[in-house]
Design a protein around this nucleic acid. Structure first.
Length: 642
DNA sequence: TTAGGGTTAG
């Protein structure tokens, strides 16, 4: 090779931006060796893969190259596959044919990766057929990518066939097959392939672990994790994320701490996993610590991390910080970012702001999806924006072509129901093109309960009894309707029915975070030391409220704690009362008490929270199953609307 | 001179 060419290559290896590339290119052309495929290929490689925002230049170069080879096309294809328009990568194969070039295994592998990422099954099948023509489907590299592509698209049988076309699959191919089973949510097949494998490495074990986690088999995952011959960061992350996803929050926190103790590097995956646990638990203080760790680990620029932080702040009741994360994050906001923000604002009752952001998102150029519209409709229903709700419900289908699912219909029923348009909601259900499920009926029952419509509530309960006779919440809602209408005989009859049907009450729990540690209280749970302290305190609080604010406990919702009543236990309290009492005991004056509850807060507890906020001069934030309640100086932001 | 398999957010 000519020494000038060698100089070019060495210079290219060092250059970092488009301008430097252009300078070298000018040098190359001036010296008359632009036709040399090696030098030109290097140029394209640099432009297309290593220098950001210079793909157009790479395309231009290739278009004008007098003697392009397969390598050059492959390089461009790879660059495109990692760009913002990965589908362009598929065109390079057509372009190669036009230039009478024969694609090689790399050409297919890059294109197949794109088909897998975008889940373009049709394109994937076409590529498979073409690979067959060239006899490349048996190639390990191509066969493995084919297996992965079919798995990604959810076609396990095709994946198996592509896998079997390889005569001697290696460990990477076997792992691709295993992953295909995992992607297709078939844990039995994951186990089967795992047993069938002639050799395994840590990746195989990690896929198996992820399989158990995804199938909700926490016990099996835990056992496998303990028995792993060796563990790497992925094993740890899989387990942390798995625990968080399956609701084992305290254990997820514990494992994260253990990971840090091992000295292994915490990365964006472990952090998003543990942040998700934080969001579920409503543990704001721990969330703040994690935010610090995010900065320390240098992963604050990653989109998924920002999304997780945004979601955590919103779900822990700190909307201001959620907004701040959104404003500060790099300009790569995706659909998850916008959904988290809109949903976060919606649960706090900021419906109008949520909708403003929806419009901003449309301008920003992100395509909405079904999940996003659930947040938008939720924002409308929780802020009483009926007209807007209807508008967006129509828009999602007419403008964006998204078919409404049962969740969207549920939001609409909620929208009408909350606003007291009960007949309209009922009519809407009857006109739905899909079969209503228990959630739909329950939503309307809740609205009937809130607006005191006995007749419709009875009808709803009837429907629910046919579909889900064991749900205690439905009995309680109907009972509340009867109680509000002073139909005490019906209340009594319902109570008998409940015990004769052996209806189990969903145990209510509340979590409070005190000095960065979470404490869980369960109504009628074990009487340990902490619960004992909470009991003692709540008795004192209630008597103070009776004296200072004339508090009288509500008897309307008498069925709420039927189990405790049956136990004839005089000291029975809802978990949120215990949590707030414990908060009063342990929280410094002036600090907000934050509670997360798994069920909806009852109206007596709601009243008690209001009174405590005034008498004890403390702000209380309660996240219940439905929304956030901010208690301050005797009032709540939900304005009695929940 | 390009490479294929594992964990993450609504």
């Amino acid at each position: 090779m000519h020494c000038k060419e060698r100089l070019c290559i060495s210079l290219l290896q060092k250059c970092r931006n488009l301008k430097q590339i252009e300078q070298i290119q000018a040098f190359v052309w001036k010296n008359g060796f632009k036709a040399d495929p090696v030098v030109a290929g290097k140029l394209i490689l640099k432009c297309a893969v290593l220098i950001p925002d210079s793909l157009h230049h790479a395309r231009h170069l290739l278009l004008h190259a007098s003697n392009p080879d397969v390598f050059m096309y492959n390089t461009l294809s790879r660059g495109l596959s990692e760009s913002e328009t990965p589908e362009d990568s598929l065109i390079t194969l057509i372009e190669m044919r036009r230039r009478s070039l024969t694609p090689d295994s790399y050409s297919f592998a890059f294109a197949l990766k794109v088909a897998a990422d975008l889940m373009y099954l049709k394109a994937g099948i076409q590529l498979h057929c073409q690979a067959l023509v060239y006899g490349l489907n048996t190639h390990l590299f191509v066969g493995t990518t084919l297996t992965g592509m079919y798995g990604e698209c959810g076609y396990l049988e095709y994946a198996r066939r592509a896998f079997e076309e390889m005569s001697e699959p290696n460990i990477v191919a076997w792992n691709a097959m295993l992953t295909a089973c995992f992607r297709c949510d078939d844990i039995k097949k994951v186990e089967f392939v795992f047993d069938e494998m002639p050799f395994r490495n840590l990746t195989s074990w990690n896929v198996m672990l992820a399989g158990y986690v995804k199938a909700g088999e926490v016990e099996l995952a835990r056992k496998l994790f303990m028995e792993l011959p060796m563990k790497d960061g992925v094993s740890w992350n899989t387990m942390i994320v798995g625990l968080a996803q399956n609701g084992h929050l305290d254990e997820a926190f514990g494992l994260f701490r253990e990971l840090r103790r091992t000295g292994m590097k915490v990365n964006e995956v472990s952090l998003t996993g543990v942040l998700s646990a934080c969001a579920q638990a409503g543990a704001l203080e721990f969330g703040k610590i994690l935010h610090g760790l995010v900065e320390k680990a240098g992963v604050g620029w990653i989109v998924s991390i920002n999304n997780a932080l945004l979601d955590t702040y919103a779900r822990c009741g700190n909307v201001d910080m959620a907004r701040l994360v959104f404003q500060r994050m790099p300009d790569k906001k995706n659909i998850v970012t916008w959904t988290s923000l809109i949903a976060g604002l919606a649960v706090h009752g900021y419906g109008e702001e949520a909708i403003q952001y929806f419009h901003e998102m449309e301008e920003y150029g992100v395509m909405p999806d079904g999940v996003l519209f659930i947040s938008v409709l939720y924002a409308c229903s929780h802020a009483g924006l009926i007209k807007e709700g209807c508008k967006y419900f129509n828009k999602m289908n007419k403008v964006y072509g998204i078919e409404p699912t049962i969740e969207h219909y549920g939001c609409m029923v909620d929208l009408y129901g909350r606003a007291g348009l009960l007949q309209k909601a009922y009519k809407f259900i009857n006109e739905m093109p899909i079969l209503p499920n228990v959630v739909i009926w329950r939503t309307l029952l809740g609205a009937c309960s809130f607006h005191g419509n006995v007749k419709l509530a009875e009808q709803m309960k009837q429907k629910l009894s046919e579909l889900d006779p064991q749900d205690s919440g439905d009995y309680i809602l109907l009972s509340n309707v009867y109680a509000a209408a002073a139909k005490w005989e019906d209340v009594g009859a319902l109570r008998k029915l409940m015990s004769s049907h052996c209806v189990k009450k969903t145990p209510g729990w509340s979590v409070i975070e005190v000095h960065r540690t979470t404490f869980t209280f369960v109504a009628g749970g074990e009487l340990d030391e902490i619960t004992g302290q909470a009991h003692e305190k709540i008795r004192e609080v209630i008597s103070r409220l009776r004296i200072e604010s004339g508090y009288v406990p509500e008897t309307k919702t008498v069925l709420h704690d039927i189990e405790e009543e049956e136990k004839e236990n005089a000291v029975s309290w809802h978990s949120e009362k215990l949590a707030v009492a414990y908060g009063l005991l342990r929280t410094c004056k002036g600090k907000t008490i934050r509670i997360v509850k798994n069920l909806r807060i009852c109206s007596d507890c709601h009243n008690v929270m209001k009174l405590i906020s005034r008498v004890y001069e403390v702000d209380i934030v309660v996240r219940d199953r439905s929304r956030f309640h901010y208690f301050k100086d005797g009032t709540c932001t939900c304005k009695g609307y929940w």
